[in-house]
């Protein structure tokens, strides 16, 4: 039997004041910590990059290590929208609708060259990057990115989630950003 306590990785406690029998820190940090370690992804896999996501989910790379073992296929329960693969112009409105259905706080990761910029498909039918329809937080380069890169993208979102101010989503800047995408 291995030592259970050794095998389990504990998240680091946020900064705060501790004394005999108490520990005080700000809500922001605790919530950030909780959010960052259980981000439920919505895998919006359209093409080749989605296959690499399958590998990321599989045993070898194992996305569960980062608290994302539950791919949430319903947008309402998801935290990150992982857009993997080419988004054609026909698909653009669907991405936007899915984004609109997600609850705040929500993050968007554009995985792969296609989602980032249209990739090798500079053609009449392909949307040249999903940032034309929804705001994107993290871009993962590669065609397709290796599973390690996808995991790294996820970890960057964890950083964002950890350090985000609780009021960010109510700020006028954020509202203006959404308004610029015509999202209510």
């Amino acid at each position: 039997m291995s030592d259970l306590n050794k095998d389990i990785n504990m998240a680091e406690a946020p900064e705060g004041h501790s004394g005999a029998g108490f520990f005080a820190t700000s809500f922001e940090k605790v919530i950030g910590l909780a959010r960052a370690n259980s981000l439920w992804p919505l895998p919006f896999a359209t093409s080749c990059c989605g296959i690499e996501f399958m590998a990321t989910m599989g045993a070898t790379y194992d996305i569960s290590r980062f608290g994302s073992e539950r791919p949430s296929f319903s947008p309402r329960q998801a935290d990150i929208l992982l857009v993997m693969g080419t988004i054609a112009k026909k698909m653009g409105p669907v991405v936007k609708q899915v984004y609109e259905q997600m609850a705040e706080p929500r993050w968007v990761v554009a995985v792969g060259a296609c989602a980032t910029s249209g990739g090798i498909f500079d053609s009449y039918s392909v949307l040249q990057g999903i940032d034309r329809v929804v705001p994107v937080d993290v871009y993962v380069p590669g065609c397709p990115p290796r599973p390690e890169q996808i995991l790294d993208g996820l970890m960057r979102v964890q950083d964002l989630a950890k350090n985000e101010s609780l009021r960010r989503r109510n700020s006028p800047e954020y509202q203006a950003l959404l308004a610029s995408y015509n999202i209510k």
Partner: peptide, 22 residues
């Protein structure tokens, strides 16, 4: 394959390949 609203037939040689909005 394309959206119903498209106004031209894209494989005809006179139409450009590239996305015109870049």
């Amino acid at each position: 394959l394309n959206i119903e609203e498209m106004e031209y037939h894209p494989m005809l040689k006179q139409y450009p390949l590239e996305d015109q909005t870049r």
